[in-house]
Each structure stands twice: as structure tokens, then as C-alpha cells.
Design a protein around this nucleic acid. Structure first.
Lengths: 228, 228
DNA sequence: ATCAAGTATTCTGTATACAGAATTTTACAT
DNA sequence: ATGTAAAATTCTGTATACAGAATACTTGAT
């Protein structure tokens, strides 16, 4: 302490403000994961008592979490009949990919204008790591890095709404895309597309990046169409 | 009743299944309106006890409604400190309009392909009614029909995700756009743009409609930039 | 008057209670 | 066996209760 009685510390550094957790937030992430991983299958009813007991929480925060997910579109509410995991048709998925494509095309254009060199280097790092996972055959990690790269490119635009909408669609599609295991030749093609993407980004060629992202997502529908 | 003991009725017609209302849903709409109309100003805290008393509901459904709106982006949650009405910066608005523009451009293209003649006629009817309101100077009704037309065009695409994302952005922007009262010459320009839109839609010229919608939203930013 | 510490109050986060709707089970008639 | 009706159970929707965090207020020292 100094003579004023206040704690004397460095302005920067330290762990920062402590992270306060709220139960309903935790439940949201938990349920989201359970839905994406398929533990809670599409169409299944979310019984509050049962589910709450399983998670070890009371109904109140659980219900709040369910409402949140309903607004997010992962869960469907039916009056007096509770919530169920939303089931997406093939057309739904196709439509989502079509919107996602448009958003990423916009992101591609903007990212090349607004991304700093350091940020682009980070995307490149993610890409290199992803290629490494591809070579080793680590599918799960590859998949995660793949998503991270797309998210990172969108974030370069510094457009909060764009990021949010993108995140929302990405979340809904996660489960389907995770199942959609393409064969080795399609996988190779996807990696090649990513290679092009990074090159365009580093060259700051927005039009080209936009085009590649569009093609990439058009192909994505080909890759998953059978599993829905 | 017929001989089987079941009610005998016509398959079609009648009021259909009765509308069951759930309190938290009603509260969601109510709060949304209050935010859009500015009764709940940006930044204001949403005290659960106080607000609940004012609406005549207990805290439980109110909290559920707040969580829903938080996921929708109209409200912000701070752990142990409750919810507050989200405040949007000028850049936020600009970013939202930029995304909205992209979505409407996509919608324009698709609407010309997928809209039926009857549906397009309905949009035309909305437009004519809107022009009438413009002539009479009924600003509120004009505004509502304006939004309805954009929503209708998006709906022609039959793309649920697109509609949903569009609706979300439109909702967030509603308050700002409602305040942004352009002068008579800008208003006239907006009406002229709408006239072009309808013409392109009726001609099923997707590229042209897309372009006009894009321009329309670029101008929208000009029209509201001062009020944020 | 200003500030700090301690106290009182308010408000959120979570659990529980209770009423009514929906569903399942059971009993009974055909 | 089949189907209907009534009873029992389960589940949702809403309200209330209580603990702990945050905030406002009071008091006393400088």
C-alpha cells in the first residue's frame, strides 16, 4: 500500500478482473456442446426435471439456458410441452450454407482491407498447424482448426454483427459438418482450397479471397449433402 | 358427432388450433417493443423486481424473457449485476447495415427466381399502399410498410435462415431507423428507390434488384448517421 | 467539508413450492 | 382383443423463498 491507502500495482499485467461464472451461462455452453456432439439427438425432448438432475442444477437456471438456446435456434419451444432439440432438414442446411457463403464472401473482401499484418500472420499460423494435423491424420483437431481459421478471417473485419451472425450459423452447422466425413480425395481438395485462401489473404487480394471462400462453401454442401 | 364418437368437421377452415400463450413469450414481445420505442433507453438497467412489478409478472418468466433478448442482442448481461439495454455505437450501426446490405442483395437475387407471381403481386400491393402513405404524409404507417416490404422480399426466398438473420438485424436497427427522420427530398429519393425495386422484382431481374437494394441500404446509412 | 469504514438495503442467482396442462396408466365395457 | 373413460402421474408454467453479492447509506474521524 502507498500513503493513500490504495494498493500499489502495475497498471498492466496480472490476471485482470476475476472471471465470474453464472450458472445459466455454464449450462448454455454445456447443452450446446451436448447438442453438437449428438448426445442430445435432434427431436429429443428436454425434460427439465430429468435433465436438471443429470446436470446437477435446479430447473430455474436450466430453463433460462433453454430460452437462450431457443433464441439461438438450436432448440425449439412448444407451449405447455417444453423444449426439444431442433431438427434441421436438408434444405435447412443448404439454406444456412447459402447464407454463410454470402457472409464469408463479405468477410473475405473486408478482411483483406482491415486485417493487420500481425493478424494475418496469426491466421497463417493456424493454417500451418491445420496442415500439420491433416498430414498426421488428426481429424478432430483438423476440424477445429478449420473452423478457427474461418472464424479468424471473419474477425479480421472487426464487424461485430458479421462475427455474430457467422458464429450463429457456424454453431448450428457444427454438428452436421462434424459428421460429414469426406473421403481422402475431397479432404485433400479442401486443404488445397485453404492454401489458396491464405495466399489470397496474404496478398490482400479481397476479390480473390472472396471468390475462394464462396467456392469453398459451395463445395461444403457437396461434402455434407449425404449425411442430412 | 358421427357414429364413431369423433367430432365431425371440415378439414379446412375454422379458427384452427387455439393459440396458447406463454407468459415469457408475451414478455419478450413487450420488452422488445419497449426497447424499440425508446421507453427503455439504451444503457438503462433492467431491475427485475421493479420491472416485474410494473408488468405485473413474477421474476421467473421475466428473467427467461431477458435471457431470450440477450441472445437476440438487444440486451446485455453482466454477471451479478443483471441486464441492461444494449447501446449501439455509430460503428455498430454501420456494421449492421453493411451485413444487412449483403443479406438483402442475396435476397434480391433469390427472390426473383423463387417468388411466385402471386407473392410478387402482394409485395406490389404493399408498395402501392406505402406510396399512398407517403403522399398523405403518414410517416409511421409509411415506415411500417417500408419494413414490411423488405421483409416480404426476403421471405420470397423461402430461406428460413436468411429470414431469421434479416429479421434480427432489422429488429436491432428498428429503433435507430425510426428516429432517423430524413427530410422531404431524401424521403422522395427513398420512395423512388422503392419504385425501382418493385419494377425489377416484377421483371424478375435479380441482378438489378440486388443492386438497387444494395444502393438503398448504402443510402440508409447516410440517412441515419447523424442520429447515432 | 471530506473521506473511510462499517452497516443497512437492494438486487441478483438459485432453489423450491404449487397449480394446472399433458401424458400415461388402469379399469371397464363391448 | 379393442377401444373408451377415468384416475394417476409426470411435466411445464409461474410464484415465492432465501443466500450471497453489489450498492447505498450512515456514522465518525480528520
Amino acid at each position: 500500500m502507498d500513503e493513500t491507502g490504495r494498493l500499489d500495482w502495475k497498471a498492466e499485467g496480472g490476471p485482470g478482473p476475476i472471471q465470474r461464472t453464472v450458472l445459466h451461462d455454464t449450462i448454455v455452453s454445456h447443452l450446446r456442446d451436448m447438442i453438437i456432439e449428438g448426445i442430445l439427438e435432434p427431436g429429443i425432448r428436454l425434460h427439465e426435471g430429468q435433465l436438471g438432475e443429470r446436470l446437477g442444477v435446479s430447473r430455474t437456471p436450466l430453463r433460462e439456458a433453454i430460452k437462450f438456446l431457443a433464441s439461438e435456434g438450436l432448440v425449439e419451444l412448444t407451449p405447455s410441452r417444453g423444449a426439444s432439440v431442433k431438427r434441421f432438414s436438408g434444405k435447412d442446411v443448404e439454406d444456412m450454407l447459402s447464407v454463410l457463403r454470402t457472409l464469408e464472401e463479405l468477410a473475405g473482401k473486408l478482411a483483406c482491407q482491415l486485417g493487420s499484418d500481425a493478424e494475418i500472420a496469426e491466421v497463417r499460423a493456424l493454417h500451418d498447424e491445420m496442415v500439420r494435423c491433416y498430414r498426421v491424420g488428426d481429424r478432430l483437431q483438423y476440424y477445429k482448426l478449420n473452423q478457427a481459421i474461418h472464424t479468424a478471417i471473419v474477425r479480421l473485419t472487426k464487424n461485430a454483427s458479421l462475427s455474430e451472425m457467422h458464429h450463429m450459423l457456424q454453431t448450428r452447422l457444427k454438428r452436421i459438418r462434424f459428421i460429414g466425413h469426406e473421403g481422402p480425395e475431397k479432404w485433400a481438395a479442401a486443404v488445397a482450397e485453404h492454401e489458396e485462401m491464405i495466399a489470397a489473404l496474404e496478398a490482400r487480394d479481397g476479390a480473390r479471397l472472396s471468390k475462394i471462400l464462396g467456392r469453398h462453401l459451395a463445395n461444403a454442401w457437396e461434402r455434407v449433402r449425404d449425411v442430412v
